[in-house]
């Protein structure tokens, strides 16, 4: 519950940064914070009260194979959000790097990082 609220607040803070800041790198930092917030929300939704990680080892059950599956079902949390977030974090880094590369390129062509200096791309 607290974790969910934290994630939502992080999304709002990141969005605020993206809307108000002028520096391109600061906008991308806002995007990174928002990314972290979304991941926290997704994982918090998959949590089940009092259960352990979805990895069947000796702490969950001593059984093996199909029997372990039957015994572990009511002892572990939802594995699907973890799996989604696992790939989303790596993609997030790649997308952040792509945005930064674009920002560097804009700096080299326009000699400025201020978003107000790129008037020709305004609508």
């Amino acid at each position: 519950m607290i974790i969910l609220i934290t994630g939502l607040l992080l999304i709002i803070i990141g969005f605020w940064a993206m809307l108000t800041r002028k520096n391109l790198i600061r906008i991308i930092i806002g995007f990174a914070v928002m990314d972290t917030g979304i991941n926290i929300v997704l994982v918090a939704i998959g949590y089940v009260k009092g259960k352990t990680a979805p990895i069947i080892d000796k702490a969950v059950t001593m059984a093996q194979g199909a029997e372990a599956g039957i015994q572990a079902v009511d002892k572990v949390v939802d594995p699907v959000p973890s799996a989604l977030v696992l790939t989303a974090i790596v993609i997030g880094l790649a997308v952040t790097a792509l945005m930064l590369a674009y920002a560097i390129r804009m700096y080299k062509t326009g000699n400025s990082l201020d978003i107000d200096d790129f008037e020709e791309q305004k609508w």
Binding site: V43, G46, Y47, A53, P81, S82
Partner: peptide
Amino acid sequence: TFLLVAAPDV
């Protein structure tokens, strides 16, 4: 936080 909500991979 991820460790506390039982997602060690993440």
